[in-house]
Nucleic acid binder design. Structure first.
Length: 494
RNA sequence: GGUUUCGUGGCCGAGUGGUUAGGCAGCGGUCUGCAAAACCGUGUACAGCGGUUCGAAUCCGCUCGAAACCUCCA
């Protein structure tokens, strides 16, 4: 029995080489994947959704290919500094101060909300979701290793990574394409009277001021871990010194991932990651959507339609479909028009999935090329997870289904099965889309609807169009759409 | 300024050295009591200017325009 990964040669775009590379796991069939998760100090917005959905798609597809995936996505609840390191205040702590809450209360509050949003988007939970605050010891141990290796220095209770020294033996900039000379010229002014030897050195442990509430004891005094330590430490802990995939948003490429590579390389003696994958940004009027720019929309805003820029509410599945309609490395531009197009398209997709069950099967039916569509979907996914092309393939299946229904044609039994499998595998399993209240499969409701539809049919038979139109209009007011066909009437939620 | 990208028809978005992406919207038709849905048909798109080539939207150069990163950020 062969596994699907033997039949499918997966190619991924590796940021490290800026090329598409054939994906070969270190320990086939096991795959380790680490993705940077959210900093839980605010509600999730569209950008979080894109990152989560991108790597959910990858997680789902790798599993579909029969790989055994350990997917680690962290929760950042300490460490990221708000301003320059010297007077930085922990992001979580700052929020806590403002709202007079315990920092961990803030963390819990937004973590729960994040999970709820991700569930709504049908994003699978990762295999492990470690919190930075729960891995202080691991981070301290790693900092010690970096110090022992001579690539960091301690000053006044803080520890800084020595980028210049690192660059003598390795290449700081290997991921982002930056040159250290450029960094020097860019950061010289900022360096000032800093504790750092160089402006571009970064803190791996930060001394906590008296007033700082989030603090842990360490060999260098009370403090908290630096920006990039948690991912290095937790990635190493759960996936090993070297693992297959590391993902995150493109905005994390520098300095976060660049620094992660430096830390892990020094601490473990080898480059930590084989394939670096980065999802692109969602833009609004061509500009990145982001908290700091004040143009970010929370997912709850979108799901409820509660935002000045929104013409209406958009369901989680509409958002998911919208995001999957673009390849993950492209920017994706937000607009009401685009969202409404996505909404309609997705409903059409699911309506056809329902219609499939009504198709007739016949041993003598002409072949319709279902296998070719299926192959196109695999080819698309194997080419750096090209979900828009998968969706195009699925729409080909939609056209096939609807046209057969329209002419009352039939399918070969094998193709009928394969079509079912195609839609189930790709639409449901890989793309992770699920029918919302689109189709009429609600048991009691469906039974009631059949009665109403029958009454309307009888009215139409009597040419009592006043009654039949009244029924249709009243149902329309309830967002129920009637679809008259050759052999009867179907219904669905609008 | 440096680094990394991008510029595709009304909108969103794939793709790519020669063959229809796809969705939404529009237009024409079929069906329908009328609609809707569905089906069929329908688009002189690839920023501009040069170059390479039998052939480029796809490769190269330049110009113009836009973005991300260089500070926390998906």
């Amino acid at each position: 029995m062969s596994n699907r990964y033997n039949e499918n040669k997966l190619v991924v775009f590796n940021t490290l080489s800026r090329k598409k590379e054939v994906f070969i796991p270190l320990k086939n069939p096991h795959i380790g994947m680490y993705v940077c998760g959210p900093t839980v100090y605010g509600d999730a917005h569209l950008g979080h959704a894109r990152a989560a959905i991108t790597f959910d798609l990858i997680f789902r597809y790798l599993q579909h290919l029969d790989y055994k995936v350990r997917y680690v996505r962290n929760i950042t609840d300490v460490g990221h500094l708000e301003n320059d390191a010297d007077e930085g205040e922990d992001k979580i702590a700052q929020k806590a101060r403002l709202e007079e809450l315990e920092p961990m209360e803030v963390v819990q509050f937004y973590t729960v909300r994040y999970h709820r949003n991700m569930d709504q988007l049908n994003v699978l939970r990762p295999s492990i979701e470690p919190h930075a605050s729960g891995h202080i010891i691991e981070q301290i141990e790693m900092i010690k290793k970096i110090l022992d290796a001579g690539f960091a220095y301690a000053v006044n209770g803080s520890v800084y990574f020595d980028v210049e020294k690192y660059n003598q033996s390795y290449h700081y900039g290997i991921l982002s394409g930056r040159k250290i000379e450029d960094l020097i010229s860019n950061t010289r002014e900022l360096a000032g009277q800093s504790e750092k030897h160089n402006g571009f050195d970064f803190a791996i442990w930060k001394n906590a001021e008296e007033s700082h509430i989030m603090r842990w004891p360490s060999p260098w005094g009370d403090g908290f871990p630096g920006w990039h330590m948690e991912c290095s430490a937790m990635g190493c802990k759960y996936l090993g010194d070297q693992f297959d995939i590391h993902g995150g948003g493109m905005d994390l490429l520098f300095p976060h991932h660049e620094s992660e590579i430096a830390q892990s390389t020094v601490a473990n003696g080898k480059a930590p990651v084989r394939y670096w994958l980065h999802n692109n940004m969602i833009t609004l009027n061509g500009q990145k959507m982001g908290k700091s720019l004040g143009n970010a929309m929370s997912l709850d805003d979108i799901f409820t339609g509660n935002h000045p820029l929104l013409e209406k509410a958009y369901s989680p599945m509409t958002i998911r479909f919208f995001i999957l309609q673009a390849q993950y490395r492209s920017t994706l531009d937000f607009s009401n028009e685009a969202l409404q197009a996505a909404e309609k398209g997705m409903k059409k997709l699911f309506a056809a999935y329902e219609t499939l069950n009504q198709l007739k099967v016949d041993m003598n039916a002409p072949p319709m090329g279902v296998a070719e569509i299926r192959k196109a979907c695999y080819d698309a996914m194997n080419d750096d997870f090209n979900s828009p092309m998968v969706i195009a393939g699925l729409f080909e299946a939609v056209r096939l289904i609807n046209s057969l229904k329209a002419v009352e044609g039939s399918l070969l039994p094998d193709e009928f099965e394969l079509l079912h499998k195609l839609l189930h595998d790709f639409l449901i399993d890989v793309l992770g889309l699920s029918a919302e209240d689109v189709a009429g499969d609600h048991g009691l409701v469906d039974g009631l609807m059949q009665t109403i539809i029958q009454l309307r049919q009888e009215a139409r038979g009597r040419k009592d169009f006043t009654t039949s139109d009244l029924i249709r209009n009243r149902l329309g007011d309830l967002n129920i759409e009637l679809k008259d066909g050759k052999d009867g009437t179907d219904w669905q939620m609008k």
